[in-house]
Design a protein around this nucleic acid. Structure first.
Lengths: 232, 232
DNA sequence: TCATGATGTTTGTTATAACAAAATTATGAA
DNA sequence: TTCATAATTTTGTTATAACAAACATCATGA
């Protein structure tokens, strides 16, 4: 990522867009989804700024935006941390995902071309392969691409960015649960059902399949989280 | 508002919370919902900063946040404006409102106490009265309070703030249509149906009533917007 | 009249320093 | 040891200045 093949820290020079704020935002975001920080880890502005070789202003802006999106939380007037695993938050995000991703699916399904369906089939093959070879990170990545390929069909830009914020939220809090979570041939059946619904031009069938996928994921994630909490 | 009874400009000294950014944010937000600025009006950072007697940093942060929420739009690398009336955006926001406010309604309905129902009845009376006396601003205000009194029941904080951003978006873009929009005894029937559903402990009935309310509003707003566009 | 290029102005972004408030550590007594 | 309090360090916020890019204006040429 960012063409940074050496082990050294990321640098602002990696930025394409002219905005350091965006660079800081996506950097932290990526670290969160990769589980670099443990829950409870503090993210002070100056530390982040130094880490990314930027000033305090863009670092502050990125952190505040992530707090606003729920990917980070404020536990005091001057302390933002990586959120602790929180079942109530997982439930809330899941309910919003069902509502919003269901909406995007149903509105977008009628617009699916053959090219899109082919892309989804190819993605599903990649996912299955990655799961068999236990490359969970790859599987998760292609799984996300599978979902958003469908969501993009409805051409509702604000809806899409809201959904992305929800994925970031769950990804950040529950990253360390994904390995055990992904063991279970995650989502294969639901994805195939969704593709079938697209072929049949049956939007509500696609929606049902995607909602099922979200619910399955929720159950597995919740179970894993509960066992994790019990063990500690 | 803000205890500013004189005609002079708002001042940062009105702030309760210690954050100038929040003050700037709510100030612009309120001006947007009150229709102070016409669509297309530019909002340069320095101008806003001077108007609110704050520095460039909090002004910039407030503007960027409103852009992110969709209440303002960027039409160039260095120009943000009050969005023009846009039927596609109204449709997108309405679809998201149906999904999210429907969710909040259905999840919250079972938690309605008698005190809540009494509050809703009182609000509805105030709304009817305001409508009869053509005090549309008051009616709109209490209408919002009616909706959010129901939405707060589900205790999903992130869901609530997402819904609030959607209200801001439509309020900002369509404010100048509200007078003709409110003429039509807006929402009375649906609100009464929602209250009835709460009394009957029938969440899906409440949801249906609220969704109907949103759809009715959408139709009227769309019609008014179309006539406005035709006329010009 | 219209296109085009130069020039000056406006504007978003960022680094920095200063300030106040919070968080942390040290200190003391019970 | 434990808890409260004082001292110290850390930290978020904000105003400001500098810079570069975008924008506007105007002159020039066809």
């Amino acid at each position: 990522m960012n063409g940074n093949t050496t082990g050294e820290e990321s640098s602002a020079s990696d930025l394409q867009s002219g905005r350091l704020s965006d660079f800081a935002y996506s950097s932290i975001k990526e670290q969160l989804t990769r589980g670099v920080y443990k829950p409870g880890h503090k993210l002070p502005i100056r530390t982040v700024a130094e880490m990314l070789n930027v000033g305090a202003t863009p670092a502050r802006e990125a952190i505040n935006r992530l707090v606003f999106e729920g990917a980070l939380v404020m536990v005091g007037p001057k302390t933002v941390i990586v959120p602790h695993l929180d079942l109530a938050a997982l439930y809330e995000v899941t309910q919003m995902r069902l509502a919003l991703e269901g909406l995007a699916t149903e509105k977008g399904a009628p617009c699916a071309t053959n090219a899109v369906i082919d892309k989804l089939l190819a993605l599903q093959e990649k996912i299955t392969l990655s799961l068999n070879e236990k490359r969970y990170a790859d599987a998760l990545h292609d799984n996300k691409e599978f979902h958003f390929t469908i969501y993009r069909l409805c051409e509702m830009p604000h809806l899409l960015s809201t959904i992305e914020a929800l994925w970031l939220r769950v990804g950040a809090s529950f990253h360390d649960l994904y390995p055990e979570f992904a063991e279970a041939k995650y989502g294969v059946h639901n994805h195939l059902a969704a593709i079938e619904g697209l072929v049949d031009k049956d939007p509500s069938a696609v929606r049902a399949a995607m909602e099922n996928d979200i619910r399955d994921g929720y159950r597995r994630l919740k179970k894993a989280a509960q066992e994790r909490l019990k063990r500690q």
